[in-house]
Nucleic acid binder design. Structure first.
Length: 824
RNA sequence: GCGGGUAUGGCGGAAUUGGCAGACGCGCCAGAUUUAGGUUCUGGUGUCAGCAGACGUGAAGGUUCAAGUCCUUUUACCCGCACCA
């Protein structure tokens, strides 16, 4: 019989779907295991990255299930987002129709790959029954003071015609469409993720199962720094400006101050000053610069004197205040001390504008002169020109100076984060509407919970310009105030899709609940996610937001079991073709559909799991895919040949001949190895050891006459082969299972255990070395003591020949491995 | 500049603890089967050398009886952040 993957895969996929094979619930004594792959955006078709992501997840799910866990393995759709709306603008399609037809197509593709999802738990963020609770989440955050509206300079993508979160701006460009992002002064909705900055940072240490890379990326993104805020009095006035510095020890080295051009106090400061005209011109110039130019390290530092002086709190000196393009409004206070001698940026600026360079820290044992300096001195040293702090080590001085600042009311210790609040409103249609109503009498009012969801209106015009399409939709905008009943208007912005995906893993725990986003007991049963799998591109955005949501929901009392969503994280590598990323423009895209058509889902899955370890990039190789297909055929033929030599009897180790023992050894060492490897996600080596076992089976077949087959040993080998292979290639193994007469369900078959007795060998080969070089190999009883081993080694003719006439200095024997004789 | 990572045959990749470097697969070479091609089965395949042997895990040192693995220095490449005061 031939391996007909097409009919086999169709047959089993239908069986699984008809019987609800992968349906799961909480009513069991088994320990739970929640494995989750990042849900896809329904772009229309699966790509190889998806196939890899979900193949890895499916192997984990099936393996854990066979090990006796109650496995939650769900799938869903991150189905709000811009492409649907762009399709509407371009082709006049309804975003919902476009989305749901893509979902149907992709669901079919996932099913053709044989993934073991509990489809009853499917979620889609764009369904009212889901976004109802996204809106509920917004309201919870609002009620706890974590959602608020403010006017600020925000990132604006002209092409997407919407604002963006800081995390969505990559090198000054929109992470979605790559257009240059500008700034706009707008009133927008934010989530106060900064309230959680310290906890999000501290708890990174708890994430043992996360890759270091992702942890360090999050650490850098949160960007904690310690320093002080210091007040400088404005000369000739009674008020102060406050600066933030991480180097209060250099405060005596301040020779000028710099302020961000957008700073709100500037207008007042420069009005009427002699440099007003230049200042205004400079501000205009800086604002016209793109974020990329502005934030590039090599952009020349420029500035203009404001006409204002500040008074140094220690020396009383008058310090000139400059506008400068290298100071940012949104970090610290937007005002910085200029310490030319000890900061490279300040040094460059001071050189350009001829500002004094004042040394206050000397490298130990040296006497630097400012006129000789070619770059700033930022290392440790001894304080000088710093009044009562002279002679101190600058690290000690830093602490002492902060204490002094606090005691004298000049300043205070301050921790700063780079993390900004999360801007969540978007001027787009295809997202969850923000459930807020503006009443002329009551102001900002939440839509009452019982009125959720605020539904997206239909028959909306998409122009792709200006305001959110919702704002043109009279029926939607006009409503009544839930508090006073007066005519009122709805918020017309929708939420960033990252809000929807920040809690979907909780919804899978209880996907049909229409009262609450999830039942607390169910969430406490399933959470947290034992294994999360996805691309590293979400290292900051999604993973940070999901952590924030989980912590907030935990604090609000909706989950008890954890305040971190993902216990273990696997970031899988990319799928490449000839070393480069697959892309339409390069024309090197390998379509999963074609591969399934040509070789079947099992071959696609096997190749992907075999070709590289999961976290590494994988280079697609057509001939190696053939190799995977060849292997499955080899397995098929072996089982087909041997199916008539099966028995119910178990092998008896003591009755076996050498060939039978060898086969049994191969089988049981493979069980051991595959189990070990699967526990560590070394799927490529797990598969290679199964291949070795198949090779051993062929050797046995070759060497043994059919009438002498040991049926018990063969049966054990065939069973183990099918079971061990089943998480990787579920269709062919299900068919083979049935073919050898099994009626039980393979997907819940108990994972095999190896038999120690089968691993015992009477003889092993060890290596004889002289001075670390291999000179001979001998076969010995593995249980020999080191002394017995040495004795045997010394009786080797070859060894005696080589050490003849030399002095044996030392002899090392490592049981079961080698003997090394050291001679002079 | 800061942070994370990678480097092993023609290629993808193995090598749990320091203990036979190159498992497994691809490719290639040969043999068997076949009218032939394909398929399948078997054997070979790091480099140099006829053999013995020597060399070999980015580079250079070191520790050790023994190093891909540990230590020091260094190079190249990939990824992330970056005028953050």
């Amino acid at each position: 019989m031939k391996y007909d993957f097409k009919s086999i895969e169709e047959k089993w996929q239908k069986k699984w779907s008809d019987s609800g094979e992968f349906k799961i619930d909480e009513n069991t004594d088994k320990p739970k295991y929640y494995t989750l792959e990042m849900f896809p955006y329904p772009s229309g078709n699966l790509h190889m990255g998806h196939v890899r992501n979900y193949s890895i997840g499916d192997v984990v799910a099936r393996y854990k299930k066979m090990q006796g866990f109650n496995v939650l393995h769900p799938m869903g759709w991150d189905s709000f987002g811009l492409p649907a709306e762009n399709a509407a603008i371009k082709n006049g399609l309804d975003p919902a129709d476009w989305t749901w037809s893509n979902v149907d197509n992709m669901r079919g593709q996932l099913q053709r790959l044989g993934f073991s999802y509990d489809w009853d738990r499917e979620v889609a963020t764009a369904k009212p029954e889901y976004y109802k609770f996204t809106q509920w989440m917004f309201e919870q955050l609002y009620k706890h003071g974590l959602a608020y509206k403010k006017k600020s300079y925000v990132n604006w993508c002209p092409s997407c015609a919407t604002v963006l979160a800081n995390e969505q701006v990559v090198n000054g460009k929109c992470e979605r469409c790559k257009s240059e992002v500008g700034k706009k002064d707008l009133e927008q909705w934010f989530f106060k993720i900064t309230d959680y900055a310290q906890r999000l940072l501290d708890d990174i240490d708890k994430l043992d199962g996360w890759p270091d890379k992702v942890k360090s990326m999050q650490t850098n993104w949160i960007g904690r720094s310690e320093g002080a805020e210091v007040k400088f009095k404005i000369d000739g006035r009674d008020d102060y400006l406050t600066v933030y510095t991480t180097r209060p020890d250099t405060i005596f080295g301040v020779s000028y101050m710099v302020i961000a051009p957008e700073h709100p106090v500037i207008d007042e400061l420069i009005s009427g000053s002699e440099t007003e005209a230049q200042c205004r011109e400079f501000i205009k110039k800086v604002q016209s610069q793109s974020e990329i130019v502005r934030s590039a390290t090599d952009t020349e530092k420029e500035g203009v004197f404001t006409g204002t002086y500040l008074i140094h709190p220690f020396t009383g000196d008058r310090i000139p205040l400059y506008l400068a393009n290298y100071v940012f409004l949104d970090y610290g206070t937007g005002i910085v001390m200029g310490v030319a001698a000890h900061d490279q940026r300040d040094f460059d600026f001071a050189k350009k504008y001829n500002l004094p360079i004042k040394i206050v820290i000397q490298p130990e044992g040296q006497n630097m002169k400012s006129e000789d300096m070619t770059e700033a001195f930022a290392a440790e040293g001894i304080m000088e020109n710093s009044g009562q702090f002279d002679g101190m080590n600058n690290k000690d001085a830093l602490k002492t100076i902060i204490e002094y600042l606090e005691e004298n009311g000049i300043g205070e210790r301050k921790v700063n984060f780079r993390l900004r609040d999360w801007l969540i409103s978007r001027q787009r249609y295809w997202g969850a509407p923000i459930p807020v109503i503006y009443c002329p009498h009551c102001g900002e009012v939440l839509v009452p919970e019982e009125q959720l969801p605020v539904l997206l209106p239909q028959n909306v015009k998409f122009t792709g310009q200006g305001q959110s399409p919702l704002s043109e939709c009279e029926d939607f905008v006009n409503t009544v105030c839930p508090k006073c009943g007066a005519p009122a208007k709805r918020e017309t912005d929708t939420m960033d899709t990252f809000v929807c995906s920040s809690w979907y893993f909780l919804r899978y725990c209880d996907p049909h609940n229409d009262k609450m986003p999830f039942d607390k007991d169910k969430a406490d049963y399933w959470m947290n996610v034992d294994q999360y799998i996805g691309g590293v591109e979400h290292a900051i955005l999604h993973l940070l937001y999901a952590r924030f949501f989980t912590k907030a929901l935990h604090d609000f009392g909706y989950i008890d079991c954890c305040d971190e969503p993902f216990k273990n994280l696997l970031t899988q590598g990319m799928v490449l073709k000839e070393g480069t990323k697959m892309s339409k423009s390069l024309g090197n895209v390998v379509s999963p559909e074609e591969i399934i058509e040509k070789y079947g889902a099992d071959t696609a899955r096997l190749f992907i799991m075999f070709a590289a370890p999961p976290e590494r990039d994988l280079d697609w190789n057509d001939t190696a895919v053939e190799g995977a297909y060849r292997f499955l055929n080899r397995v098929w033929r072996a089982v087909d040949d041997l199916k008539e030599y099966l028995t119910d009897e178990k092998p008896n180790q003591s009755d076996l001949n050498e060939d039978e023992k060898k086969l049994r050894l191969a089988v049981h060492s493979t069980i051991k190895k595959v189990t070990y490897d699967c526990d560590r996600f070394n799927f490529n080596t797990a598969i290679s050891s199964i291949m070795e076992m198949v090779n051993a089976l062929y050797v046995y077949k070759e060497k043994t006459e059919k009438e002498n087959y040991n049926k018990a040993v063969i049966t054990e080998a065939v069973n183990a082969l099918i079971v061990l292979l089943s998480p990787f290639v579920p269709h062919i193994t299900s068919e083979l299972w049935e073919m050898i007469g099994k009626t039980s369900n393979l997907s819940v078959e108990k994972w095999p255990e190896y038999d120690e007795d089968a691993l015992v060998v009477s003889e092993i080969e060890i290596v004889l070395q002289i001075n670390g070089k291999i000179r001979d190999k001998i076969k010995i009883d593995p249980n020999l003591s080191p002394d017995q081993m040495k004795e045997l080694a010394m009786s080797s003719d070859r060894i005696n020949e080589l050490i003849d006439g030399k002095e044996v200095v030392k002899c090392i024997a490592v049981p079961k491995k080698l003997i090394n004789i050291v001679v002079k």
